[in-house]
Design a protein around this nucleic acid. Structure first.
Lengths: 201, 201
DNA sequence: TTATTAATTAAACATATGTTTAAAACAATT
DNA sequence: AATTGTTTTAAACATATGTTTAATTAATAA
């Protein structure tokens, strides 16, 4: 009784891997079909167009990537400190498994900014999150209201995401083997929250 | 006596702007010619191929972008503290004028990692810079030898570069007007060195 | 089994795009 | 002015690539 969907799923899975690694223009429908071991026409048969297929995958990737932190941002039952720790840990875990996702998203924004925000990020407003409000309050309490909380948010994101974005470059410039790099990223789970706490205290 | 080179220069100038904004595959030779107001064939006449043209521009961009900090990294007459301040200030100034350069470079690395490092970054070794050695020594003196100096370098680069990379996203998500964003970036010239000093002291 | 629907295939189609060509226009030199 | 070399042009060429088509095969239902 279960629908088969084998071919359709294979195409999508293969397409996801290729789009994430090489982007929209860097991937051809023929490559997808070939890698999936199916006929070229089936890509269009199942997904109408390369663009449709890409949009589906981008939407799913975004969802997958952000849903894992959205609840942390808006948890009413945790302190600012806990949120920071969880946020960083969750991101580093995610990025360790899917290190290409950030560049996948950033490249798409670069080539299609308007469409990206209209299509994918309709109304995500960081200022309205619990985390942001806690941070604002905290800075006030510590007499640091001169520091725009956006700075702190930027720092958390920067220190967490950027090392993964430039990973290929760092590997080269620092001559560091993969496992050592991984170990560094694991260390950062504890270090980043510590550094951020210093900033806001 | 001065060679004219008008057409050649125009093509290159236009190509640089387009490549930096939309990347190699996102730019067509016809667009370049059209924007430059010249005949399509002249792109190949002067630069042999689109790829050659791209390589020239990438090389120049990299050089321009890194040469401005290389001397800071290796200055024998400045303290660690001064280096950090100068580094951050120089980068933020550069990025304010050319905010698209980081994504330009990162996109190229993404689509052509091997070629990029072989062709463009032959033997850039951060561990051999004066700055890195000063940082290592400093951490030892402060009994923080457990912290890998690479962490600190990552943090400086992350906090400085990342906000420019995700600028289009931040504009959306934080609903911030351009001038306000610029002001934030200027503030970071002082803030980032301060935060980094806290990390290493 | 037979009829109908869905899946698959090879081929063709349409278009975009990098590159080349051959002729013309222009500039410089003798 | 005539020759020579350089620059520019329109057109053609070659190829890559997304998409469609029409026919065939496989699966499902009556």
């Amino acid at each position: 009784m279960k629908k088969d969907k084998k071919t359709e799923d294979t195409i999508k899975q293969v397409a996801r891997a290729m789009f994430i690694q090489k982007g929209f223009t860097g991937t051809t429908t023929r490559e997808i079909a070939s890698e999936a071991g199916t006929n070229l026409a089936l890509v269009n048969y199942y997904f109408r167009s390369k663009e449709q297929l890409f949009k589906q995958i981008m939407l799913e990737s975004l969802h997958e990537f952000f849903e894992s932190v959205v609840d942390i941002f808006n948890d009413n039952n945790t302190t600012l400190e806990i949120k920071l720790e969880r946020l960083v840990e969750r991101y580093i875990d995610q990025l360790t498994q899917h290190p290409d996702i950030p560049m996948f998203i950033l490249s798409e924004i670069r080539s299609n900014p308007e469409i990206f925000f209209k299509e994918f990020l309709k109304g995500t407003k960081i200022r309205q999150t619990v985390l942001f409000n806690q941070l604002t309050t905290h800075l006030k309490e510590k007499q640091k209201q001169k520091i725009n909380p956006i700075h702190i948010m930027m720092n958390v994101m920067s220190m967490t995401l950027f090392p993964f974005i430039v990973k290929p470059m760092i590997s080269q410039v620092t001559e560091m083997p993969e496992h050592e790099y991984q170990a560094l990223m694991q260390e950062r789970k504890k270090l980043i929250p510590m550094w951020v706490k210093q900033m806001v205290n």
